[in-house]
Simulated scan of single mutants.
Amino acid sequence: MPEGHSVHRIARQFDRNYVGRAVSASSPQGRFVEGADVIHGREATSVRAVGKQMFLEFDGDVWLRVHLGMYGAWDFAGEILVDPTIASANGRMGQTNQRGTVFDAPELDPPELDPAVLAGRVFDGAGENSLTSIGAPRRARVHVRMSEQTTGLADDGMQWPPPVVGQVRLRLMTDITAADLRGPTACQLQTPDEVLATIAKLGPDPLVGDVAEGEERFVRVVRRKPTPIGLLLMDQSVISGIGNVYRAELLYRALLDPHTPGRDVPEELVRALWLDWVRLLEIGVETGQMMTMDDLDPAAYRAAMASRDDRHWVYHRAGLPCRVCGTEIVLEEMGARKLYWCPSCQR
C-alpha cells in the first residue's frame, strides 16, 4: 500500500510540471473517456495531497481525484522539472537511490551529518550527482509509483509524444511533459464540495493544515478507541498517510506493543507517535526514502539510502534478530496486512 511521503512528492511534481499549464487529456484504455473529455484543454490551477490521495484542480471548478492503491502508478516522460529543495536521484520520486547505486562521497565530520547534505553527496548508477543537476529540465522517462519500490527508466531517445505502453487509464500532457496513470484504485472527477467531503473523512496529515490541531485530533480519537493501536495507525480516518512500513517502524520506535488498545496507550505516548510521524514524513518527502533509523554514521547512511534492508528497525526483517535486543522479529497478520514487530522491545 502506498505511503504518504510518495503522494506528497508526486503532488509536488505535478505542481512543477502541470500547474499553470493547459493540459491535454485522454484515456487510451477507454475506462475514463468521459472524464478525460471534461478536463481536456483546461488549465491545471492547483494540486494537493492529503494522506494517500492526490487532488488536481482544473479551471472551471473541476477536480481530479487519484488514489493509486496497491497497483497504481504514474509514468512521467519528457522534460521533468526537478525541485532543488528535494533530494532525488535522476528525477526519481519515491526512492532516492536504487540497489547498485554508486556512492562517491568522502567521510564527513559529525557536524555535516544532516540527511540533505549526505543525500547531496550521493551519485546514482549513471554517475550523475543527485542534486547538482536539479533545477534544469531534463529529457527523461521516470516511473513514479506510490510505494518505496519506485524504479527509474533511463532516457531511451523516445519519440514525442511517447507511445502508450500498457493499460493507461489517463494520459495528461502539456507541450513538454506527459504523465500516464495506470491501475489506480480511484480516478474520478469531483466538484469542490465533493473534494471537501472526501478530505473531511480523512484523518490529520502533518503536511496539511495546522500540525498542533492535527495532534489534538489524533490524540482525541486514539484515546477513546478500544481498537489495537496497530490497526488505528493504518486507519486513514484516524491518521492520514501511514502504511505498512511506517506503521511497523513507528510502533517499534515508540517501543509499543501493536496489540495495545488505543485507549490504553498513555496520552504522552500517543503524542509522541504523532510527533514522530511528523518527523518521519518530512524526511520521507525530502529524501524519497522511508528512512526510519536515526544517528547513522556516514557509511551506514549511504548503505541505508541504497538498500531498504539497512533502513528499517523491524520492517521486512521477519526471523532476523532485533537490532537492539537480538530477539527474533515476529511476522503476523493484522488487519489483513503484514505486521513486523519485536515481542521483547515492544511490550
Rank of each mutant, 00 (worst) to 15 (best):
Q159D: 13
A304C: 07
N244L: 03
M93E: 03
G20I: 07
L281R: 10
P266S: 08
L202N: 02
E333V: 12
I229S: 01
D205E: 06
R217C: 02
V19I: 15
M146F: 06
A25S: 05
G326S: 06
A272H: 12
P266M: 05
D156T: 13
M291P: 00
I10T: 13
E332A: 11
P226Q: 09
L250Q: 05
A306D: 11
Y315T: 14
P163A: 12
R139D: 11
K225W: 01
V195P: 04
A300Q: 13
I229P: 02
P266T: 07
V164Q: 04
R16L: 15
A105Y: 10
I329F: 01
Y315S: 15
A140F: 00
I80Y: 14
W277P: 04
L181G: 03
R42I: 02
C325L: 08
E107M: 11
L56T: 02
Q159E: 14
V7G: 00
D61V: 06
E282P: 00
R302Y: 13
Q236D: 08
P28Q: 03
E249T: 01
R171C: 09
I10H: 02
D205F: 05
S344C: 05
S133V: 07
R12E: 15
G94M: 05
D37P: 00
M290Q: 06
V208W: 10
R308W: 05
R220G: 03
Y252W: 15
M158H: 12
A300R: 13
L251N: 03
L207T: 09
R317W: 00
P162E: 12
G135Y: 07
I39M: 08
P298S: 09
R92C: 09
N97E: 05
V195D: 02
N90D: 14
R171V: 11
A212G: 07
D104M: 14
P137C: 06
Q53C: 07
G35C: 03
D294Y: 08
D193F: 01
M291K: 00
G214V: 09
R16Y: 09
D235V: 06
R121H: 15
D75N: 12
M173Y: 00
D83E: 14
D109G: 08
M173T: 13
A304W: 10
P184W: 12
Q95F: 08
P228R: 06
S46D: 15
L231C: 07
A105G: 14
A11W: 07
G20D: 05
L202V: 04
I229A: 02
D109Y: 03
H8Y: 13
E112R: 10
R99Y: 10
A300G: 05
E79P: 00
E107S: 12
L273T: 13
D294R: 10
P115R: 03
A197P: 01
K225E: 15
L251C: 04
A303T: 12
Q95K: 09
G127I: 05
V7C: 05
L296V: 06
I239N: 02
Q13H: 09
G30R: 04
R141P: 00
K52I: 04
E57N: 11
A87I: 10
Q159H: 03
L64E: 06
N129C: 10
G319S: 08
D59G: 14
